[in-house]
Design a protein around this nucleic acid. Sequence first.
RNA 1: UGGGUUAUGGUGUAAAGGUAGCACAACAGAUUUUGAUUCUGUUUGUCUAGGUUCGAAUCCUAGUAACCCAACCA
Length: 580
Amino acid sequence: MSEEKSLNFIEEIIEEDLKNGKYKSILTRFPPEPNGYLHIGHAKSICLNFGLGLKYGGKTNLRFDDTNPVTEETEYVDSIKEDIKWLGFNWAEELYTSDYFDKLYNYAVDLINKGLAYVDDSTAEEIAAMKGTPTEPGKDNQYRSRTIEENLTLFTDMKAGKYKDGEKVLRAKIDMQHTNMLMRDPIIYRIKHAHHHRSGSTWCIYPMYDFAHGQSDSIENITHSICTLEFIPHRELYDWLIEKLEIFPSHQYEFARLSMTYTVMSKRKLLQLVNDNHVTGWDDPRMPTLSAFRRKGYTPESIRTFCDKIGVAKRENFIDLSLLEFCLREDLNPKALRVMAVLDPVKLIIDNYEEDKVEEMESENGPDEALGKRSLPFSKELWIEREDFMEEPAKKWFRLAPGSMVRLKSAYIVKCESFIKDAEGNVTEIHCNYIPESRSNNDTSGISVKGTIHWVSAAHAVNAEVRLYDRLFTVENPLGEEGDFKDTINPNSLQIITNAVVEPSLKQATAASRYQFIRKGYFCLDKDSTAEKLVFNRTVTLKDAWAKGSEEKLKDKFMMLSALADSFFIRQFYVWKDRS
RNA sequence: UGGGUUAUGGUGUAAAGGUAGCACAACAGAUUUUGAUUCUGUUUGUCUAGGUUCGAAUCCUAGUAACCCAACCA
């Protein structure tokens, strides 16, 4: 009995098209411009387009929309392909709009011959001035009435390189008074004497997006051309060109792009973060790019699940980062290898443990028994997490404190007997006694303790650098703030710990593995890691009910109580005042 | 002062005139050798005002709000 998932509006359109025989099968496309790295917002589009192809037995092309040679580079082509493959999708064909430059040129000539396009000698400023505004209609200019022959000659000359950049453009002849600004004789070809990453110097005129995208869809017989909401006004032009050119009628459908809390999604802004060195590069794990998520340890599965859960609709949306993290943890929890690592080490000494004794403790590698077990060296001196000891324990404190007992994970129960502080008041040593009968899997002590903490044997510990990442911005919507979005950058988005200690088994850590540092979070090896120096990235923290309870909750409770108290006293004051 | 698009809990997303559901978040509890996981429960919603109807998130009318459109970018 499987619950049928409801269809999104695009799936409904496709099912209808398939049912009534409009198409026998569907063909979608993912059309990135190779001028930047793909981000999580693109993942939504990729999952949508490729997902549709898969779901309805159709296909999906990868088409690079490379009509602007000055911003596009092969570096980006390569990274885009890598990211799509990493996400787990395969394109039917790898195509480039630049493959169609000849066809596109002929379409333009066709339009001129039909009297539907003209060469305009105006400057960019003049064109803008004559275009009007959203509330005022535009005006025709003198070039609009050129003859077909004249236009043909001029356009041929444009192609031949007789003119400089910006000297002339080719425009579609539609309607300067149109309520849709895009229909006011849009520019369809411009002159750019620039090197193109694929066609080299073959061309010095390049089609605009509007004169390339729809036609490319049509050339490929794309049935459903899916793009984001801001292209809605373009659809009218898209349809007009297909109609006038009398070519295969692809159709455009628009969905709302992804916005997410605590990040920005525009390529321009991401580029700024890179150029201004707020991050170390496009794959800095704090970035929302796919290469950054990959480096940080995210799995493609988790991103696909996320894209599935956020849905596809036409209304603007603002997704909680916590949903992405939920999908990640859900994927990682069953498969991450459990290991012990101490990020902020403090020495724990077991006074009643034999000096040079080393015991091998068995510990599970994960919740799934198939992951097996490993053995961990245990000895008299251990490293434990500084935050797992409290000199004056808080209420409901389960961990170490003077006189209290905890279980050392997969080892013994210990009782804190004393501790030593340095001149600055920092705890330097915690002294305990262990309960010999309490050894894990063989506990006959009869003692039960609330808290279990992780540890690493000091003599066997391996040093590591650990990079803790937090959200890049301090506010949910950096663009919603007054001033520059960069003002809300989180100064603590990266914390580098150079003196972490990890269990010896991690010397064999692999880049492909995902680890859970018990009680700390999910981690993976960073590409900077070497045999001499291990470097781990925190992929995501574990949920932490204790931290939440002790900080925000207490603060909230305090605020609420003080507000209640305030209103109580104010009320009492008026009662008192009224009486007197 | 134009045109287009969208309005359902805090955030997303369903319900195609007939029980407002699901997920995340939040909160409470149970279990736990990870204060994780798991399990159970709770809170919170149809933009507004009218109308049609036995019955409206859904249909009608009038408003309101948000977003997009004035690059030789895509």
